[in-house]
Computed example of a mutant assay.
Amino acid sequence: MVSGLVDKPVIAVPTSVGYGANFGGLSALLTMLNSCAAGIGVVNIDNGFGAGFLASMINKL
């Protein structure tokens, strides 16, 4: 939803904790990967370092 409202890239970081049946972050990861919005970069579960690295790569463009 966020990437449809902004004109900048969005980095999605699924977390392993959450409400209900989150299956260790797998349900959040699959939801983010199945998004049809443009401009979304998805990293692995709890991968804040990878998200920061991706943001650094985007800034260098």
Score class of each variant (00 low, 15 high):
M1S: 15
V2W: 06
S3T: 10
S3Y: 08
S3H: 07
L5D: 05
L5H: 01
L5M: 03
L5P: 00
V6Y: 13
P9V: 11
P9A: 02
P9R: 04
V10F: 14
V10W: 13
I11V: 13
I11C: 02
T15Q: 07
T15C: 14
T15N: 06
V17C: 06
G18L: 06
Y19V: 06
G20A: 02
A21L: 00
F23L: 14
F23C: 06
G24N: 06
G25P: 12
G25D: 04
L26G: 00
L26T: 07
S27Q: 05
S27P: 00
A28T: 02
T31I: 12
T31Q: 04
M32H: 07
L33A: 01
S35K: 00
S35H: 01
C36Q: 08
A37M: 14
A38K: 12
G39P: 15
G39I: 13
G41E: 14
G41W: 13
V42E: 03
V42W: 05
V42F: 11
V43I: 06
V43R: 00
V43L: 03
V43T: 08
I45K: 00
D46K: 09
D46N: 15
N47H: 14
N47E: 10
G48T: 02
A51Y: 12
G52Y: 14
A55E: 05
A55F: 07
A55T: 07
M57C: 06
M57W: 05
I58E: 01
I58L: 15
N59V: 05
K60S: 15
L61D: 07
L61A: 07
